[in-house]
């Protein structure tokens, strides 16, 4: 099982409409990605809470179809 980068981005944006998402395929196997996500939804949230928002956006795929997603999350400057 694997996922396409475009699917990851689409799912994240469905939950976090204002998100700026960049995705890097770490190994070309569709299983190991790195992603940076910037969204105002992260403002005032801890890193754990920010990552949990992204995992919820992925609707259970994290740890299943998607084995590894190295995440960097932040709120936009001034948010």
């Amino acid at each position: 099982m694997a996922m396409e980068a475009a699917d990851i981005e689409r799912l994240i944006k469905e939950s976090l409409p204002d998100a700026e998402v960049t995705i890097e395929d770490l190994r070309g196997d569709g299983d190991h990605y790195a992603a940076t996500v910037v969204s105002s939804a992260f403002a005032g949230k801890t890193r754990v809470q920010q990552h949990q928002l992204v995992y919820q956006a992925l609707q259970g795929r994290m740890g299943n179809e998607l084995h590894a997603l190295a995440l960097q999350t932040s709120a936009p400057d001034g948010a």
Partner: peptide, 21 residues
């Protein structure tokens, strides 16, 4: 922890994060 992956680090009973964090 409502965290979908392993490993998970806990310090004094509190979830700190997974590998990235």
């Amino acid at each position: 922890s409502s965290w979908p992956t392993i490993p998970q680090l806990y310090v004094k009973g509190e979830f700190v994060g997974g590998c990235d964090i």
